[in-house]
């Protein structure tokens, strides 16, 4: 099916951009959410967004974007990958993150339960301290900040969804564009019918629903509902969040995409 259709550039906004300059330089703070399930890892998308925030281009998914030298700083705080993971994967995007002074990384993965949160059954103070550490690294409000897999804290510690939302808000207040990347596997993590507040799915569902009510842009990655296909990895839906952007409009669109063996990404309109 895909071979008959023309390949498309990925865009999020009606000005044909992925991260508009108006957003990075605005007075208001915005939240975007990238959700995925097992089998549709958003690594290629995060790498492209890091590239476009740092230098304007997104070489893997959009050939039209122009290079803007020293566009903005980027901070990535990941609860699921170490620094080397991003350094290695972003080489495909023409980035050397190990020596890029605009790029900062907070490793919330390697020593999460050995140093950062030493007592998961009483974790609130440690988690608050960890997020305070991240907030201190947001030195410039025009920074694009990516928090990957913060929901890990909900199922691995005793903190509540409100505690986590409060800490994410602290970060969002200090930057103009925050991306939260979260898994939403059904029914393990997301289940609207859950009623037990101690249940992992209750905490995660409550967290994700409330987070979506703060969001301006939702990016959903899903495998094909019809089953596995050799030439299609999944679908990506770009939709408006609960709070609209003031100066730009979201270009709502549904794509299907294919991540090839050599990590190229092909996108087609659905």
């Amino acid at each position: 099916m895909s071979s008959n259709q023309p390949q498309q550039d990925l865009i999020f906004f009606t000005d044909n951009s992925l991260i508009p300059s108006d957003v990075l330089s605005s007075q208001a703070s915005y939240l975007s959410i990238i959700t995925h399930v097992q089998g549709t890892s958003p690594t290629w998308l995060i790498n492209s967004l890091i590239e476009t925030a740092l230098m304007g281009t997104a070489s893997v998914v959009n050939s039209d974007l122009k290079r803007i030298p020293k566009r903005s700083n980027v901070l990535v705080a990941s609860f699921s990958h170490p620094h080397e993971f991003y350094v290695r994967n972003c080489k495909k995007n023409g980035l050397d993150l190990s020596s890029n002074p605009q790029f900062e990384f907070v490793d919330c993965f390697s020593t999460l339960f050995t140093e950062l949160v030493s007592k998961p059954s009483d974790a609130k103070r440690d988690v608050d301290a960890l997020f305070d550490k991240i907030v201190k690294r947001v030195t410039n409000p025009n920074m694009a900040v990516f928090i990957e897999a913060p929901e890990t804290l909900l199922y691995a510690t005793n903190i509540s969804s409100s505690d986590l939302l409060f800490n994410l808000t602290k970060i969002n207040k200090n930057c103009r564009q925050l991306y939260v990347i979260s898994s939403k596997d059904y029914p393990q993590y997301v289940d609207f019918d859950t009623t037990n507040p101690q249940d992992v799915s209750f905490k995660t569902t409550d967290f994700l629903v409330k987070l979506h009510h703060r969001s301006s842009l939702n990016i959903t990655l899903e495998p094909l509902s019809t089953g596995r296909a050799k030439d299609i990895t999944g679908s990506i839906t770009i939709s408006r969040g609960s709070i609209p952007y003031e100066t730009v409009k979201v270009n709502e669109r549904e794509y299907i995409y294919h991540v090839t063996k050599d990590s190229n990404v092909k996108l087609y309109f659905r």
Binding site: K184, T237, S239, G241
Partner: peptide, 10 residues
């Protein structure tokens, strides 16, 4: 309910 937010909402 699976947090696949479709287009044309909000």
């Amino acid at each position: 309910s699976r947090l696949n937010i479709p287009v044309n909402l909000n």
